[in-house]
């Protein structure tokens, strides 16, 4: 789960060149020169300033606007994900406050859509393949005969990422993609083990904290209170069960309207 989330973070940080999150920069170019590859990207001194040539994954400002604008226009069904529109900042051209499940949704569906037509064909293809790979391993049914092909595909995707992205992109989380298919072979499908459910539940716990000095105690106190109320309501007739609130659109489908 964190593999997907961290890879998504570093891809978006590098593409949008978000300060503090990007893996590209002057040090990455110097490292490329030291490794003896991609000399066309080496920093060129122009008087007092240094000019960094654009790499194949660098986006211009208009391309960034197109990327963010695509994500800003996304509308999803109720309960599918958080409101993606609220995560995009068009002023700074970056994504703010991504939760792990947002990264999951981006990686599964939205990222391949957002990069259409703005990146060079080769880079676009690699990122799309990576997203498709994550999409396939997260499916509920996965045939054991497909696993060998998937494993080879993951390795080829990583090699292609090495071709286009700077070496500083490859932290341990990117490496662990190689071993994901092996995990499926041993432990079964991914959706049973990836804890997006728990991570979303953490948000509910976070809302329980009233006294920031003692967060754990207030979580425990309010969780017990809620459990007690839940228990009591089972003995009361004509009372709605507490839990996940019903969406307002559900009632409209029943013909009752939202107001």
């Amino acid at each position: 789960m964190h593999v997907e989330k961290n890879v998504c973070d570093s891809i978006i940080g590098t593409l949008l060149n978000i300060k503090g999150k990007t893996k590209d920069g002057i040090n990455a170019s110097k490292d490329l020169v030291e490794m003896g590859v991609r000399f066309e990207l080496q920093p060129q001194p122009h008087g007092k300033r240094t000019y960094l040539p654009p790499a194949c994954h660098t986006l211009s400002k208009s391309q960034k606007i197109s990327f963010c604008g695509c994500l800003r226009g996304v509308k999803v069904p109720q309960g599918y994900s958080s409101n993606i529109k609220s995560l995009v900042s068009m002023e700074d051209l970056k994504l703010i406050g991504l939760k792990s499940h947002d990264c999951h949704v981006l990686m599964q569906d939205l990222l391949p859509m957002a990069i259409r037509g703005i990146l060079p064909e080769s880079v676009k293809q690699v990122i799309t393949h990576l997203c498709l790979f994550f999409n396939v391993i997260c499916t509920k049914v996965i045939g054991p005969t497909r696993l060998d092909d998937l494993e080879n595909e993951a390795i080829i995707i990583l090699c292609q990422l090495e071709l286009y992205f700077p070496p500083s992109f490859f932290d341990i989380m990117v490496h662990l993609i190689v071993h994901l298919v092996r995990e499926i072979r041993i432990c079964g499908p991914m959706f049973l083990r990836w804890m997006y459910l728990i991570e979303r539940f953490m948000k509910i716990f976070k809302g329980y904290v009233k006294n920031p000095y003692r967060p754990e105690a207030s979580i425990v106190e309010r969780y017990i209170a809620e459990e007690a109320i839940k228990f009591c309501t089972t003995y009361m007739s004509k009372v709605d069960a507490i839990g996940i609130s019903r969406s307002r659109y559900e009632r409209r489908q029943e013909g009752k309207g939202t107001r």
């Binding site: 110097k30 490292d31 490794m35 390795i155 070496p167 932290d171 990117v174």
Partner: peptide
């Protein structure tokens, strides 16, 4: 691979899995 300027350890060389 220890990056000299980035000062990070990075794990490249996935070609051996091919």
């Amino acid at each position: 691979h220890q990056l000299k300027y980035g000062k990070k350890t990075r794990y490249i060389g996935h070609r051996k899995f091919l």
